[in-house]
Write a protein that binds this DNA or RNA. Sequence first.
DNA 1: CATAATTTTGAAAATGAATTTCAATTTCTT
DNA 2: AAGAAATTGAAATTCATTTTCAAAATTATG
Lengths: 148, 148
Amino acid sequence: MNRQESISDKKEHLKSFIKTKGLKSTRQRDIIVTEFLKTEGHVTAEEFYRKINRRHKNIGFTTVYRTLKLLAESGLAAEQVFADNLTRYESLLGEEHHDHLICQKCGSITEFKDNKLENMQVKIADELGFQILNHKMEFYGYCSNCRK
Amino acid sequence: MNRQESISDKKEHLKSFIKTKGLKSTRQRDIIVTEFLKTEGHVTAEEFYRKINRRHKNIGFTTVYRTLKLLAESGLAAEQVFADNLTRYESLLGEEHHDHLICQKCGSITEFKDNKLENMQVKIADELGFQILNHKMEFYGYCSNCRK
DNA sequence: CATAATTTTGAAAATGAATTTCAATTTCTT
DNA sequence: AAGAAATTGAAATTCATTTTCAAAATTATG
């Protein structure tokens, strides 16, 4: 399955989500969703609106904002808040859960995943009688470029 | 060293911090700091202001807010933001770093610490060339009471 | 001790991201 | 094609947080 197919899969996913919820599919939503699924990294609603707005002057911030929320609800995007307290959205193009390394110098956000670590987390929580539904793990510091 | 001594130690710590910074010590700050160091758990500025305000009608929200910031700056309190996006303060009465379990039913916040986990985190970051200055780990789910 | 210099206080205003409102428009259904 | 229902987007609102500013308190200095 190549990346292109994956994107159309996701669009199908959203279409059925929209239908189930009794929502309507619109020109704006199509554009925003298509753009978003092609976007790498983590964007704020504001940032993403500016990107959309370059080519589509008639799509407003509110619609971008609402569509990102919709994507998050449908499971196609992850909504995340890091130390700067801004809400960011990340496309979940078939990606699994992962955690983040946030560089405090250049602001870059890198992803990582470690199964041993994840297993350990579940085990620890279990010992404490806590049932984990989801978790958040972020490392703040200097990335390999900036620590030099 | 009993708890009472520990508190006065902390107050000394803050006094010298205040002096170094060229700040002044005031009646309000004294009251707020004393109350805070006796407080268990994680409070928002608003919550803590309401608590202070019960006995001290003449201490304003802004002063409580600013004093909590001061405590955080001086290292006597930890400033934390969980999933509800409110800023909370936690007294660091000689406590080491720890992470949090947040119950999504009752809202309770429990602390835990696991050295193996911490070591593993450093190791993983190291392998990625990332230098960790601090990290954040939160588990969201159901606490032992609420999972029943 | 007094007075000058500086900081603090606290009510009110400002900020800013997130969210909601509402009239006009678009989409879907029949 | 027309009615019902959802969407759009500019503007307004919300709400926690932060700043402002004049009056008061504290500390340093003569």
